[in-house]
Design a protein around this nucleic acid. Structure first.
Lengths: 144, 144
DNA sequence: AAAATAAAAGATAAAAAACTCTTTTATTCC
DNA sequence: GGAATAAAAGAGTTTTTTATCTTTTATTTT
């Protein structure tokens, strides 16, 4: 469904935002450990997310990554678009270059509904949400 | 969503089954042209589908690929499972190794519904279906 | 039986994705 | 200002996926 980078990105953003609520920043090393991803690879992804303003960063001692309050409204869709692009929005399930309402592939109509729900899910789920869910103890992100 | 191989496989099976209804077999070269896929790569995929009994094959002059009548009941899910495995059935959207009803990731419950619909779509759509749809002229598989 | 045809199998190559390592730049603390 | 810290940037490497090329095997036709 999503690329590995994208999966890591989602987990990383949630992880960083949790730290941010406590008022502190978090370094690559700790993020990587938390989300069970390779450290340097995580660094690349975080650079990308930072360039795209999904997370913020500060260099130097006591530096690290954090998310600003207004960015808690970032949705899963925003992260997915930032990393994997908008192919889930546009691409045909069968990979046809031309597949539209006017010129549909055999599963176009059925898939449209599924896609609609998937996109709705990605857009409605914001990171502030996840913080609450994970706090509740009923949901997790751990790889154990 | 699916690998390239899998997309090709789906199109190839539909393409072959259409020829089979006319009572004739079809060679790799023609399949590849029809589905706009590289010839030798298509050959590999067809070998795989043949080993897994989703299509049949015959060597020699007048040989080629075909699908038997009973195999028209093959669903998209069967093809996807044969090529990409059953990860859409089992894997967590966020890539967590542990993600279940008892130990859900933050989107587990919402995604479960979407997954259910997706799987239903894949299982309900059989290739005999597609033949009719494409015959009707309202749906297509062409890459033009 | 020989020639022709077409898939099967095996080996190789190219591209993309995933991952690693090293150097540079910005910031803070002393 | 100098040392220490941590991200940014750049330059690899490895693995997986996608694609190509060559040889072998099975079948048919003559």
């Amino acid at each position: 469904m999503f690329s590995k980078s994208c999966e890591y990105a989602i987990k990383a953003v949630i992880c960083i935002s949790q730290k941010s609520r406590e008022g502190s920043r978090i370094g690559v090393k700790e993020v990587a450990k938390n989300i069970d991803a390779p450290e340097h690879f995580t660094a690349k992804i975080l650079q990308d997310l930072s360039r795209k303003n999904i997370v913020q960063s500060m260099k130097g001692p006591n530096g690290g990554f954090f998310v600003e309050k207004q960015d808690l409204k970032t949705s899963l869709a925003d992260i997915v678009k930032a990393i994997d692009g908008d192919k889930i929005y546009n691409e045909c399930v069968l990979g046809l270059k031309v597949c539209s309402q006017k010129n549909p592939c055999p599963v176009h109509n059925e898939y449209r509904e599924i896609k609609k729900n998937l996109i709705a899910m990605l857009e409605n789920n914001k990171i502030e949400h996840f913080n609450e869910m994970i706090d509740s103890g009923k949901y997790h992100l751990k790889m154990k």
